[in-house]
Amino acid sequence: MSTLTGTVALVTGASSGIGEATARTLAADGAAVALVARRADRLASLAKEIAAAGGTAVAIEADITDRDQARAAVARTVAELGRLDILVNNAGVMLLGPVEHAPIDEWDRMIDLNLTALLSVTEAALPHLLAAAESEPRRVADLVNISSTAGRQVKRGSGVYNLTKHGVGAFSESFRQEFSRRHLRVGVVEPGAVATELRDHLRPEIREVQQQRLSAMQPLQAQDVADAISYIVTRPRHQTINELLLRPTEQDD
């Protein structure tokens, strides 16, 4: 029997990168997976791929920066798949650059997606996660929040991104303290440089600098992070991985 058989996972930002790889991995582990993102065509293709491999997936197009859509995505997950055992808050954006003369809309986008959307989905999922933690097959539930090395260290040119990722860590630790005795676990994953679409959203002059940095090392792949998430949620009931930091071997910052 697969490790997560009988469970349901919801993955945000599932249309590419870490979210896409995580959805595939959790489905291979036996979970039915709700795929949540804005790009419906990519979600539909991924859902078909998971089904062809013998898994179960439902594609849910949603902009989770809209609280009503975030709540509706969770509600649809439970309505169609029957429960919710695992929430992976993966959706995020990284818009780097100096504070001086920064486009303020970039700050808003990071706060809206990296923080507010994470809180909205978590709030909607909470009663279902608590219910799953009290029932078979595992009698434990998991919240996994994707942060970054930017949630542990601060660099100039990434102040608001640092703000959001430090916030993810702080919220996660408070959440852990509140729900640990109810067997709702929380894990924070903090990847270093990963080869994903995250840098595609940067302004051209900043993207060039980041691409040069990435080319100087062998970056992590999305599957590396998905494997870490799978490890967290497949631990026995008495064990929690609260924080997992992973970097490319060659990354020195």
Rank of each mutant, 00 (worst) to 15 (best):
R213T: 07
E243V: 04
R83H: 05
G54R: 11
V225E: 12
T149G: 07
L35G: 12
L119A: 13
W107V: 15
T12H: 05
T122S: 08
S230Q: 10
L113Y: 14
D227E: 13
L115Q: 08
F171E: 02
P191T: 09
R138P: 02
V189T: 04
P204A: 01
V140W: 10
E100R: 14
D68M: 12
L113M: 04
L87K: 08
E190H: 09
A62W: 03
R39P: 06
I64P: 06
T249F: 05
N162R: 01
V74C: 00
T149S: 05
A150N: 05
Q221K: 10
I18W: 09
Q221M: 12
D29Y: 14
D142S: 10
P236Q: 14
L246T: 09
A195H: 08
G54H: 11
D105F: 04
A72M: 03
A37V: 14
D85S: 12
T65L: 02
E205Q: 09
A51F: 04
V188W: 04
A75Q: 04
E123D: 13
V144N: 02
N145C: 10
A59I: 10
A21V: 12
M110L: 10
D41P: 04
F179Q: 00
N162V: 02
E134Y: 03
A70V: 09
A28M: 08
D224F: 06
L84Y: 02
S2W: 01
A21D: 09
E190D: 06
V209Q: 14
L143Y: 02
L43E: 11
L198V: 12
R185N: 15
E250W: 03
R67T: 13
D253K: 02
L95K: 03
M110W: 05
S135R: 15
R138M: 13
L118G: 11
V88I: 13
L87T: 03
T149P: 01
D85A: 08
E80P: 05
N162S: 10
L129S: 11
V140E: 14
E100T: 11
A125I: 13
M110S: 09
L84I: 03
T56I: 13
R176V: 02
E197L: 00
V233W: 02
A62H: 02
H166R: 06
S148Q: 07
G187V: 02
R181Y: 15
R152F: 06
V188K: 01
A91K: 00
A228S: 11
G169E: 13
D41L: 02
A70K: 01
T240S: 12
R24L: 15
D63N: 14
V144M: 06
R83T: 13
S230P: 05
G30W: 13
A91N: 01
H166M: 05
H183Y: 15
R213D: 10
L202P: 08
G97L: 13
P103I: 05
G17R: 00
W107G: 08
R71L: 08
P98K: 06
G92I: 07
A40K: 10
A40H: 09
V189E: 05
R42I: 01
V225C: 09
L246K: 00
A216Y: 04
A23S: 10
S135G: 08
V58W: 06
L129C: 05
T22I: 14
L10S: 05
V194R: 00
D112N: 15
R109Q: 15
R247F: 09
T164K: 01
Y231S: 08
I111S: 11
G192F: 03
V11L: 14
A40C: 03
R83P: 04
E250D: 14
D105E: 13
P204G: 00
R109S: 15
